[in-house]
Amino acid sequence: MISEEQVRRRVTQIMAEEFELEPELLQPDATLYEDLGLDSLDAVDMVVALEKAFGMKMTDEEAVRAVRTLGDLFEVVGRLSNQQAAKE
């Protein structure tokens, strides 16, 4: 099991590094598109970076499309990581 806190820290670190975002912007209620300035083109890059870091697949998940805030992202990444680790 990967803890909520670990997920939060790692996702925040990846978003800061890969998208060159200021760490203080990376709050759970920050929206990816409006607050962080990402666009639909960044979404694929983000998914690829997170899949690599967490060793899981986000491709086939409806939930990924519903992600609006960074908090949503923490939740989805944590859930999928633990689900997929349990299957292996």
């Binding site: 890969e18 960044d42 890059d45 690599k52």
Partner: peptide, 11 residues
């Protein structure tokens, strides 16, 4: 481009 795009394209 952002680093995430470079990484994705390079890999």
């Amino acid at each position: 481009f952002r680093k995430a795009f470079y990484n994705r394209m390079r890999n």
